[in-house]
Design a protein around this nucleic acid. Structure first.
Lengths: 108, 108
DNA sequence: GCATGACGCTACATTATTTGTAGCATGACG
DNA sequence: CGTCATGCTACAAATAATGTAGCGTCATGC
């Protein structure tokens, strides 16, 4: 099994390939990552509000994802409390706009 | 735990909310989903070639994801063998282009 | 014919991740 | 002080992913 070198700051799978898209796809491909970014897209939320927005996902994962997303520089914890997107995170979220439009057209 | 009604065709989480973006984010947020779509982006691959492209991910998950992506209408199994994107899947993949550009700028 | 090899796909034990629930420490407000 | 919300953690149970092996089928070679 592909064990990562560091178990604490579990590095993103594919980050060693030198292809940033791989690292990004892996990070965003973890459960709740996309959803978290999506829910923060237009306003910061407290950890509990975020949890509510994410269909009461367990705080364990949410916290783990938030830490990863913070390390990636997409999310930050405002000094008044509450999680929000960094400017970088905003940019990332804007790339989801076509995805949103696609989803609307999809309507399975 | 939010149990889905049908266990066979495990429906996408959030699909009951009526917001297709949620269903899509959940589907794409499963491990290897994004990667699979990405690897198929410009040519069909056999199941084994896809596995190789996906860093030898286990065939169990790959098969599960491919089934889900097929049910979603993004991927199809060509009659000559080999997995490829449907026109819908192509559209979806095109929404990843800004993501790719973002990743290049990101380069952590 | 019949081995050989590639295909899509499955079984299954091991390991990793997620879930659900409870609760901690801190700080603001009354 | 009591109460409440915050970010965050513990931990057992449930679920999902991994790694390895192999099945059945269909070509192609010889």
């Amino acid at each position: 099994m592909a064990k990562e070198a560091d178990s604490k700051t579990r590095s993103v799978r594919g980050s060693r390939t030198g292809r940033p898209i791989m690292a990004l796809l892996d990070l965003l491909g973890r459960r709740w990552s996309l959803r978290i970014l999506w829910e923060l897209r237009d306003e910061p939320l407290t950890s509990r509000a975020l949890r509510a927005a994410c269909d009461e996902a367990s705080p364990t994962v949410l916290q783990a994802r938030l830490t990863e997303l913070r390390e990636a520089g997409f999310v930050e914890l405002g000094d008044g409390g509450g999680y929000g997107l960094t400017p970088l995170g905003q940019e990332l979220c804007e790339t989801f706009v076509p995805l949103h439009r696609f989803a609307e057209r999809w309507r399975k």
